[in-house]
Amino acid sequence: MRSWGDVNKTLNERVRAGEIASFRTNGAEAARTGSLEIRIAPGDGIDPEEARRTVLRELARLGIVAEVVVTDGADGSTV
Rank of each mutant, 00 (worst) to 15 (best):
M1R: 04
M1C: 12
M1Q: 09
R2E: 02
S3R: 08
S3M: 05
S3V: 12
W4S: 10
W4R: 11
W4C: 07
G5R: 07
G5W: 12
D6E: 11
D6T: 01
D6F: 03
V7S: 04
N8F: 15
N8A: 15
K9Y: 11
K9G: 02
K9C: 08
T10C: 12
T10K: 09
L11M: 11
L11C: 06
L11S: 08
N12F: 15
N12G: 08
N12V: 07
N12R: 15
E13T: 05
E13W: 05
E13R: 14
E13C: 06
R14H: 05
V15P: 05
V15T: 10
V15R: 07
V15Y: 06
R16C: 00
R16Y: 11
E19V: 12
E19M: 08
I20F: 00
I20C: 03
S22R: 09
F23G: 00
F23M: 02
R24Y: 01
R24P: 00
N26A: 05
N26H: 02
G27T: 02
A28Q: 03
E29D: 09
A30G: 05
A30C: 04
A30I: 02
A30F: 02
A31K: 09
A31I: 03
T33E: 00
S35Y: 13
S35R: 15
L36R: 00
E37P: 00
E37V: 10
E37Q: 13
I38V: 12
R39A: 14
R39E: 10
R39C: 13
I40W: 01
A41N: 07
A41F: 07
A41K: 01
P42C: 07
P42F: 03
P42K: 03
P42W: 07
G43T: 07
G43D: 06
D44P: 15
D44M: 09
G45T: 02
G45E: 14
I46W: 00
D47T: 07
P48S: 08
P48L: 07
P48V: 15
P48N: 05
E49T: 11
E49M: 12
E49W: 07
E49G: 04
E49L: 04
E49V: 15
E50P: 02
A51E: 14
A51T: 02
R52Q: 14
R53E: 13
V55Q: 00
V55E: 01
V55L: 14
R57Y: 08
R57I: 09
E58M: 07
L59A: 11
L59M: 13
L59Y: 05
A60G: 11
A60V: 11
L62E: 11
L62N: 12
G63Y: 10
G63C: 14
I64G: 10
I64F: 14
I64W: 07
A66N: 04
E67W: 14
E67Y: 05
E67S: 12
V68H: 02
V68I: 07
V68C: 09
V69A: 13
V69W: 07
V70C: 09
D72C: 02
D72K: 01
G73H: 06
A74I: 13
A74N: 06
D75S: 12
G76A: 08
G76P: 12
G76S: 13
G76L: 11
S77N: 12
S77G: 04
T78Y: 08
V79G: 05
V79D: 04
V79W: 04
V79A: 09
